[in-house]
Computed example of a mutant assay.
Amino acid sequence: MELLEKYKSSITQDARVTLSNKFLLSEMEINIFYLLVSQIRQDDDDLKEYVINLKDLELLTGRTQKKGTLLKVCEKLKKQTIVLKDVVSVTDGKEYEFIVENLIGAIKKPKNKQEIRTTISPDVRQFYINLKKHYNKFQLKNLLQLKGRHSKRLYMILCAFQDTGWYYASIDELLNIFASKVGEDGQIEVKKYTAGSLKKHILGKAKEEIEDVTELRFEIEEKKSGRKVVGYKFNIISVDSPKFLKEYQQNPVFIRLVEECSLSIHQAKVVVDGIDTEMINMLLYQIQLARTNKQIKGNIGGYTITILKRSYPFLEI
């Protein structure tokens, strides 16, 4: 399946096309893909190998990844391709009408290690950078903590359209996004829903989870042609930060937990509320020392949560 992109089009348009019906990923594929997105930097070495720690993934999602499922997910991700049009190649500096690349490079799982490793093509990196600009660290964590596949897809789309304040899609477009899957033969299969059942069983349930887990608030508005519902408009009411954030941003320990340890603002609040400041500073020193000595495998956020849960099992993070 191809993910069509115009390499030189606007960043906003890139992300919106990506999040449309051309990008059909399962819940676990989305988790792995966006953990990869969160790591990529503009100045990364062309041969850089990205490490996705499976324990971190379990901590962030609250679910164990089964070995057989992991292999199938990696196989599906490896088959995804992207077409870059009207592009100057990073590798040789020449102009090309199009370049067809894998969305993700070879995926390897070392023996006796809870991690997978992968690479990306230098020519695909800009696509990832453009996509990443639509999501801050907090939103990426929210995406991983959402459990439903439909919730993840809708959250991805609405975050990308938060600058406009709304997003509209026809019923057919929504079915392609939320009721599609790739069959064993590689063909896209679309399950049929009426407009009412689509809203009740997919969009409505996704809205409930999104508003329970994140600060995103939106209304779903019917659009009709005569008496027939032909689409839905999503009016984004608020993506404001939580009320507590303004107060806690004055706390330097809270800021360090978010910026240095990659905790979400909610996780950092739990730590600040539940542990003495002196003990947190000691913990931060230990983590900084482990990072300096290159003892941290995987991402710093997962490592910090592991240390916190080991030392303070009563914390609900």
Rank of each mutant, 00 (worst) to 15 (best):
E5N: 08
S10R: 05
I11E: 12
D14N: 14
D14H: 09
A15N: 09
R16D: 06
F23K: 05
S26L: 03
E27H: 02
E29F: 01
I32L: 11
L35N: 14
S38E: 07
I40Y: 14
K48Q: 10
K48W: 04
K48H: 08
N53I: 00
L57P: 02
R63F: 05
T64I: 05
Q65A: 10
K67L: 11
T69W: 07
T69N: 13
L71E: 13
V73G: 01
C74Y: 08
E75Y: 02
E75Q: 13
E75T: 11
K76L: 04
L77G: 00
K78C: 03
T81D: 01
V87W: 09
T91E: 07
D92C: 08
L103Q: 00
I104F: 01
I104M: 09
A106M: 12
A106P: 07
K111L: 14
N112G: 11
N112M: 11
E115Q: 10
E115K: 10
V124F: 04
V124N: 07
L131I: 07
K132Q: 08
K132F: 04
K133L: 11
H134E: 05
Y135C: 00
K141M: 01
N142H: 01
Q145N: 15
H150E: 14
R153C: 05
L154I: 06
Y155A: 03
F161P: 00
G165Q: 09
G165V: 04
G165S: 07
Y168N: 08
L174C: 04
S180C: 05
K181M: 06
V182W: 07
V182H: 10
I188Y: 01
V190F: 08
K192N: 15
A195Q: 04
L198C: 03
K199R: 14
H201A: 09
E208P: 08
E211M: 05
D212F: 11
D212G: 10
V213K: 05
I220H: 06
K223W: 05
K224V: 08
F234L: 06
D240A: 15
S241H: 09
S241R: 14
Q250E: 15
F254N: 03
I255C: 14
R256E: 13
L257W: 07
V258G: 11
Q267K: 14
A268P: 10
V270K: 12
D273C: 11
I275N: 13
M279D: 15
M282A: 15
Y285R: 12
Q286I: 02
I296D: 13
G298K: 07
G298L: 10
G298F: 03
I305F: 00
L308A: 03
L308V: 07
S311E: 12
F314L: 06
L315C: 12
E316K: 10
